[in-house]
């Protein structure tokens, strides 16, 4: 891909990461342990893209052109990167077959831990503008909205599942699928046995 285009794509991403790092001093401190390290990040699909992430004093720099040798490399599709950043299990996501890692894996793990763990204390910034009381009320409201959103989502999913399985009978239930798979397996085994028996009898007939 055109290097200038890649560089232009990197600019806003770099600005966002560095802005978030400024709001999360803990992560910024952890990042400094990797100062000077370079990670080659390759996206394999939907577009081919190679970016070098360089850890600098002020944060990170994303470059489309890097002439030195990277300390480590990571290659995956865009969807795998999305999973990587949202996954709770670092080891599971990082060492899945969809992600290829080369070079110093300690650098990859460390940078992944910092970037995936970036967290902003929104309440602190909100409070400095609107005051503690308003911030408390607002965060209560947000928490209630989150809880309501979560329970609503679960209820909707349960209802849809029940309708599709039990009422409309459009989809089989899990136990029905398991039973059907078991019957198929049993049928396959019987066919294998019949096939083996036929071959054995055929061999006897030929001998006779």
């Amino acid at each position: 891909m055109n290097e200038m285009f890649t560089s232009s794509l990197c600019a806003p991403v770099e600005a966002i990461i560095n802005a978030v790092l400024k709001q999360d001093p803990g992560s910024a401190l952890q990042l400094q342990a990797f100062r000077g390290k370079v990670l080659r990040v390759e996206c394999t699909s939907p577009i081919k893209l190679i970016v070098h992430l360089v850890v600098e004093e002020q944060g990170v720099s994303l470059r489309s052109v890097f002439e030195g040798e990277a300390d480590a490399g990571i290659s995956a599709s865009a969807s795998s990167y999305a999973k990587l950043l949202s996954s709770d299990s670092q080891t599971g996501a990082l060492f899945s077959p969809a992600v290829a890692i080369s070079g110093d894996t300690h650098v990859v793990q460390g940078l992944h831990r910092v970037i995936a763990g970036l967290e902003i204390d929104w309440q602190d910034h909100f409070a400095s503008v609107f005051g503690d009381v308003a911030t408390h009320q607002f965060s209560e409201l947000v928490s209630r909205a989150k809880r309501w959103g979560k329970s609503s989502r679960e209820t909707v999913l349960d209802n849809v599942e029940e309708y599709l399985h039990e009422e409309a009978r459009l989809l089989p239930s899990k136990s029905e699928v398991a039973h059907f798979s078991a019957r198929i397996d049993e049928l396959k085994l019987r066919l294998d046995r019949i096939n083996a028996r036929t071959q054995r009898l055929g061999a006897r007939v030929n001998d006779a």
Binding site: E3, M4, S7, S8, A11, R63, S64, V65, F66
Partner: peptide, 8 residues
Amino acid sequence: LVKRFTVE
């Protein structure tokens, strides 16, 4: 963006 790429 052009300046950024030039620095790269």
